[in-house]
Write a protein that binds this DNA or RNA. Sequence first.
DNA 1: CAAAGTTATGGCACCGGTTGCCAAAAGGAA
DNA 2: TTCCTTTTGGCAACCGGTGCCATAACTTTG
Lengths: 198, 198
Amino acid sequence: MPPPPSSRRAPGRPSATSHAAIEQASFRLFAEHGFDGTSLDAIAAEVGVGKRTLFRYFPSKNDIPWGQFDRTLEAFADLLDAVPDDVPLWEAVHRGVLAFNEFPPDADPPHAERMRLILRTPALQAHSVLRYGEWREVIADYVARRTGGRADAGLPLAVGHVSLALALTAYEQWLDDTSCDLPGLIDTAMRELRSYLA
Amino acid sequence: MPPPPSSRRAPGRPSATSHAAIEQASFRLFAEHGFDGTSLDAIAAEVGVGKRTLFRYFPSKNDIPWGQFDRTLEAFADLLDAVPDDVPLWEAVHRGVLAFNEFPPDADPPHAERMRLILRTPALQAHSVLRYGEWREVIADYVARRTGGRADAGLPLAVGHVSLALALTAYEQWLDDTSCDLPGLIDTAMRELRSYLA
DNA sequence: CAAAGTTATGGCACCGGTTGCCAAAAGGAA
DNA sequence: TTCCTTTTGGCAACCGGTGCCATAACTTTG
């Protein structure tokens, strides 16, 4: 019986490491010395690889804590598409955002640690906007599709921004007490916003 | 008649430049070579000063386009305080944000050029979140004062985030056509949000 | 088994932003 | 003139990031 095609090794020199290995080694060092206190040389040494090689796995040091965010975004788009079309627009978006933030409690590195790092390290806070921009785009595309307009029109842009605003509000509170229910906090923020504007 | 005390020269070596001079020289170079294409050495040369000295006026290259943002924030707080207390909270914040974005059309460097640089240069987009954070804090403090709660409670955080969201939405549209009325765009975004959530 | 082809590694030099350190410049005051 | 105060600016060093290229480590082919 021949081995399945996926088990045939690719030609060429085999990889010396992986995204996951770099991520885990990095989080170990970040926990010990902080993000700024951890140099790329230190990470490279911990992984047992040349510094030059790190840049073939992550485009920058700032991207390491984000892991494989592009794949996460695809899942988000699917969650939005799964909401029935007869749900009012604002509620559909809201449901999608809630679902996106229900994650398995066994992520590695743990979700709370990762988000604390990202949201409380100035250099990473700054870098995040680029990622947030992609996230907002997913929402803007969805809103544009539902309203039949363009994704760069006022409403899609605004909904993307406001949805992000609510999520960030909830995350800030959640980091103060990670035993809270994150989707619950988002839901509360949405309720508060609606009564604030009423 | 003695000269007013403010005109007496301070002791010590006089300054070789100023925030304004650095800002203007920088914008000249940014316009010509772009932000990333302008090195600090080039700016220092244009100003006629040592590179080391630039860091005594601005904490980083990214801060140059922002100018004196701390003073701007004080003005923003005053604008919010000037709104009568009997105006509903959401409308008070909204009026404050609108007033903040009515600026004289003769700013130097021009407001549109500055904002285009900040909002369309990735490195500056990223850096901006730190400034936005201070801006949101002004709003959160105001909301907390009006509601008699803490600034890190849900509503103040959410209002800060959402106000920023609307402003950024408007700026994105304004940059596409700077002949538009910026406060008008913010107002429209607010109206759209209210009908979206209704 | 040897040669050829493929792919990843990692060392090196280099750039640009940033910081600490310190000597020197440039003014006022005694 | 001397002292005090403040700013300047040069220098070395660190760190993140990039281009270049030789080489290691495999697979495939002959």
